[in-house]
Amino acid sequence: MKEENRDTTHFGYKTIESNQKESLVADVFHSVAAKYDIMNDFMSFGIHRLWKRQTIACSGVRKGHRVLDLAGGTGDLTAKFSQLVGETGQVILGDINDSMLKVGRDKLRDLGLVNNIEYVQMNAQALPFPDNSIDVITIAFGLRNVTDKDEALRSMYRVLKPGGRLLVLEFSKTDNEALSKLYDFYSFNILPTMGKLVANDSESYRYLAESIRMHPDQDTLKNMMENAGFEQASYQNFTGGIVALHRGFKY
């Protein structure tokens, strides 16, 4: 599932010019931002909360840490990290899409989480932070939307402090044939219909299903992390491999 060459990339099953992907992905997320949380619960039957819980358990976030929740969207992880890092720490909710950032900011402010969170619109391929300045980076269900994943991983490696870690929570590949067939049926038939009914947008959810299929599998992503410089890269599968959590360290 490698990008075809330096000038083209995938947008779902379509091959497009690399410079078009950002705006096409942006359109998708502008369209779904308002209903993002409710659709997440609908689509995953609430299981995305368990995947995120396990991500937090593996993050090793402690008081005083500086955490970057990349492609943080509506701030599910940021909300927890904000409580874990305390007043002396900081959480940066970063997203390339301003609609998602606005939804996330409003949600977190409604929860009373205001003291230690910063909202930054940023591109994962060119993180606007100094070298060695972040303790933990998480990117949950965001990496597959990035145009150049290798460049993004290198950028994350650059800003991490030595001893810091990256956690990538992302859809992946299941090796169970029966589950795979069921999942395909669900993704290409039920998911767009749900998108149409709840968010009045079936195309964005068709893109979601296609982009998941085009995303690198577990071992490929692990190799990509190692190539970017991460050490002790490993992954754990959730729900039969439908989702995987990759973890890598910078020493």
């Binding site: 819980r53 396990q54 358990a57 593996c58 090793g60 008081k63 409580q83 874990l84 305390g86």
Partner: peptide, 19 residues
């Protein structure tokens, strides 16, 4: 598993492998 209390809320983690 692990317990992490932040002064207001207690977080309970499963499959905890960190220090």
């Amino acid at each position: 598993c692990a317990l992490h209390y932040n002064g207001d809320h207690c977080f309970v983690y499963g499959n905890y492998l960190d220090s």
